[in-house]
Every structure is written in structure tokens, then in C-alpha cells.
Computed example of a mutant assay.
Amino acid sequence: MIAAPKAVVFAYHNVGARCLRVLLAHGVDVALVVTHEDNPAENIWFERVADLARDYDIPVAMPEDPNRAEFVARLQALRPDFFFSFYYRQMLQPALLAIPARGGYNMHGSLLPKYRGRVPVNWALIHGERETGATLHRMVEKPDAGEIVAQQAVPILPDDTAGEVFAKVTLAAELALDQVLPALLAGSAAHVPADLAAGSYFGGRKAEDGRIDWSQPAAVVHNLIRAVAPPYPGAFFVLGGQRIVITRSLSRAGGSEAPGHPELYTEGGRLFARCGDGGVLHILSLEVDGEAVAPAALPARLGQNPVPLV
């Protein structure tokens, strides 16, 4: 009887949980799940991989740094065939990548080589992309640069938020892995070199990066709002000493009045924002200092209508 392929799985977040389920469904022997301690300062809105692993009686490790010599030795002793990394947040260094007999593979939340690096879904929305997806690729020392084994595209609709697109990317990751895994385990999966010159690399983002510049075109502001909408920290501005977070907007055809004079105004019981190019956004929801406020009530709360934004 042929032994099942053995894997060590580095995983976190919803993509980690769904892809771990795929490996188990295909009979992969998961010898260890390596995941992260949750950050108490972070909004944990996603599934915990550690809980899923324990449901399946899979040992769990949460090293502060998996690249330390003692942890490397622990994984060497397991003699795995594969490493899989699914939304694990630390880079695996060459000493780790040399361990699995049949290589290490990472699932990335973009259509590589585009949007290599951190938070690819958020960056794709910021740049107004109409498509993204998930890519399974071989891990090499350079981030998101190894041969591509599988990809699955998903659409980005004009008013989709990052949370909605992330849900699509999670499904795309599951589909891509499920479809290619039999060939990968059999040793027959195609490995296509990534053309890095055709792609891009982006770093992480901070909450402060969500500050709205209303002098920007409406499309730019709208893309920022949806790219960092809850469960992410949100797009915000400060007015009258109050922090106002716009949690959802819709792009509105037309506008083009008074370019260069951004303002908030009510019309027909709804709140609108005119941006720097004269383009208009319909503000669907917002928070003031952490409290949900009806959008149309904001001008009265601020004591003026319209509300100048610069």
C-alpha cells in the first residue's frame, strides 16, 4: 500500500482553513499545522486555523519565528513530502524551504505576477481592478516569485468591498487547489515560470493609509473606501475634531459640477460627496467616532449643509 503524501501546512485566516480542508479531502497526511497566535489588537473576523486543526486531531505549532534553528530541526525530523503555505504571514527562509522532499507551495491572493507582496486584495481594489483571483505557486526565497502551478480568476464588481472580494478569493483558492492537487500529488502538474517583469510588488498597509483626500477624483476616493471597508479599519477623515469613517459608498454617474470644491451635501434624504474632479459618491453608511450615524443626519450634526471638505 502506497503511503499518503505527508505535508506540513503553514496557514492562517479563511484561505488557510479552506485550503487545509482541501488537503484533508484529498487524503494528504497533514503531520503538523503551523499557524499564528491571534493579535489582540486585530479584528479577528475570520476562521481560526488552529481550531480547525484541533477538530481533526492535527498537532498545532505557533512559533514566533518558524525559521529558528530548533524549529527547523523539528520539521526536518518529520520528513515531509510537501510544505503548503496558505495565508501564513511570515516568509519561509531557505533552510526551511529545503526540507520538503517534493517542494513547498504557497497560495497567494492575486493573479500572479500582479500584486505580489502584502494585502493583494486591498491593493487590487485601490487600483480599480476588475479582476483578481488566487494563485498556487512554488515557494522560493524571493516572495511570490516561484513557478505558477494553478490560478483561478474572480471578477471585481464596481462597488464590491474588500471583504466581498476576499470571500471570492477564498473560494478561488479552494477551487484552484482542489483542481490541481491530484496532479501535484502525482508529480504531473505543470510548473510555469512567473514573468516578474509583467507584475508588481506591494507592501503592507496601515490604518492611517485609509485617510481620505477629498481633492482626489471620485473614482479614487470610492476605490479607497471599498478597499478598506469593514472588516478592515475603514476610510476616514477628520472634521470638527470628529473622526468620520465612510464604511460604504456607491459611485454615481454624472457629477462634474464645481470641480475643485469637495463637499458633503444632502439631497432627497440621502448623503452625497462631491470630490475634487466634481464626481459624486452616494454615501451609504458611516461612523462618527465609532458610532454608526445615519448618513443624511451628518450635515446637521456638523452644523452646516453643504459641508466643505477642504
Rank of each mutant, 00 (worst) to 15 (best):
residue 4 A to P: 12
residue 7 A to N: 01
residue 11 A to L: 12
residue 12 Y to I: 12
residue 21 R to W: 03
residue 24 L to T: 06
residue 27 G to D: 10
residue 30 V to C: 09
residue 32 L to V: 06
residue 32 L to A: 05
residue 32 L to I: 03
residue 37 E to A: 11
residue 38 D to N: 11
residue 38 D to F: 11
residue 45 W to D: 09
residue 54 R to S: 15
residue 56 Y to H: 14
residue 59 P to C: 13
residue 62 M to Q: 15
residue 65 D to R: 06
residue 68 R to D: 06
residue 69 A to Y: 08
residue 70 E to D: 15
residue 90 Q to D: 13
residue 91 M to Q: 07
residue 91 M to G: 09
residue 95 A to W: 07
residue 99 I to L: 10
residue 99 I to Y: 06
residue 108 H to S: 08
residue 111 L to M: 15
residue 113 P to K: 05
residue 122 N to V: 11
residue 125 L to S: 07
residue 133 G to A: 08
residue 140 V to R: 04
residue 141 E to L: 07
residue 142 K to N: 08
residue 144 D to M: 08
residue 145 A to R: 02
residue 147 E to K: 02
residue 148 I to M: 09
residue 149 V to F: 07
residue 149 V to T: 09
residue 168 K to V: 02
residue 168 K to I: 01
residue 169 V to Y: 00
residue 176 A to L: 00
residue 179 Q to I: 07
residue 184 L to K: 04
residue 186 A to F: 07
residue 187 G to P: 10
residue 189 A to F: 12
residue 191 H to M: 09
residue 198 A to I: 12
residue 208 E to D: 12
residue 210 G to E: 06
residue 221 V to R: 00
residue 225 I to G: 01
residue 225 I to N: 01
residue 225 I to L: 06
residue 228 V to D: 05
residue 237 F to N: 15
residue 237 F to S: 15
residue 238 V to S: 13
residue 241 G to W: 08
residue 243 R to E: 12
residue 245 V to Q: 09
residue 245 V to R: 03
residue 249 S to H: 04
residue 251 S to E: 12
residue 256 S to W: 12
residue 261 H to F: 11
residue 261 H to A: 15
residue 265 Y to D: 14
residue 266 T to V: 15
residue 268 G to E: 03
residue 269 G to Q: 09
residue 279 G to S: 05
residue 280 V to H: 01
residue 284 L to S: 13
residue 286 L to N: 06
residue 288 V to T: 13
residue 289 D to I: 06
residue 292 A to Q: 10
residue 295 P to S: 11
residue 298 L to V: 07
residue 299 P to C: 08
residue 300 A to F: 02
residue 301 R to C: 11
residue 303 G to P: 06
residue 305 N to V: 00
residue 307 V to E: 14
residue 308 P to E: 05
